[in-house]
Computed example of a mutant assay.
Amino acid sequence: MTSVSDDVALTMDQMPLGEDGLIDFRRLAVDLIETVINHAMELEADELPGEGNRRNGYRERRLKTVIGEITLRVPKLREDTYFPERVMRPYSRVDRAMVGVVSKSYVNGMSTRKIEKVA
């Protein structure tokens, strides 16, 4: 099966097919979205200021969406950093649910020592 990212203009013979022989529109949509977002990130990284702002490869990140998992190729730069904040959130080790439980416990009068033991 040919990926959309290999060639932007697809013929009917290059469309991703499902097991039933029909066009797999979900795979086609995922491939098209990957191609568009990856290209947009490259353009945005190129626009960052700095003369020595050359590429140093890519970091692959997976993003789960309603249509399927998308593989993003985030450009790495030699002299600056680039993170596509409009595409995904920065990696965080803090679980949002845990922060909510701790803050709610504190608001309800639980001491910080007890919260610490529970956490």
Rank of each mutant, 00 (worst) to 15 (best):
T65W: 05
M1D: 08
T11S: 14
G50P: 11
A97S: 06
Y82R: 01
V66H: 11
M12G: 01
D24H: 13
Q14K: 13
V118H: 00
M15C: 15
V36S: 10
N108K: 14
S111E: 07
F25T: 04
E44I: 03
D13M: 07
N38D: 02
A9L: 14
V66T: 13
E60S: 14
G52I: 12
L63A: 02
R96P: 05
L28P: 02
P84S: 11
S5P: 02
V4Y: 14
G21F: 11
R55Q: 12
K76P: 06
T2W: 13
L32D: 00
G109C: 02
G52S: 13
V30P: 00
L28Q: 05
L22M: 07
V107M: 11
E42R: 13
M98I: 12
E51I: 01
R61E: 04
T65K: 01
P90F: 06
G68M: 03
E60P: 03
V94L: 07
M98H: 11
D80Y: 01
L43H: 04
G100L: 08
I67N: 01
E47M: 07
S5L: 13
I33T: 11
T2F: 11
M1T: 13
S5D: 12
A40V: 07
V74E: 05
M15I: 08
V87E: 03
R26K: 10
R26G: 01
M110P: 03
I33F: 05
K76V: 15
E60I: 08
M12P: 00
Q14C: 02
G109F: 10
S92P: 09
D46C: 01
T65H: 06
M15Q: 04
R26S: 03
G21D: 13
M110E: 10
M1Y: 04
L48P: 01
I23Y: 00
I115V: 14
D31W: 11
Y91S: 15
M98P: 00
L10A: 03
L63M: 12
M110F: 08
V94R: 13
R27K: 15
D46I: 09
F25C: 05
S3A: 10
N53H: 06
P16N: 07
Y91I: 05
G18Q: 06
N108H: 12
M88R: 14
L72T: 05
Y91F: 12
D46F: 06
Y106K: 10
L10N: 06
T11A: 05
D20V: 07
M41Q: 08
L32Q: 06
D7A: 13
M15H: 07
L63H: 11
D20T: 05
P49Y: 05
A97P: 00
S3K: 11
F83M: 04
R55N: 10
V36M: 08
R93C: 00
M110N: 03
V36I: 12
V107W: 13
P84C: 03
G50E: 14
S111G: 12
Y58C: 06
I37D: 01
R89P: 00
A9Q: 14
L28R: 03
P49Q: 04
G18F: 09
L72Y: 11
R96G: 01
L10D: 05
R61S: 05
R61A: 11
G57A: 13
A40R: 13
F83T: 09
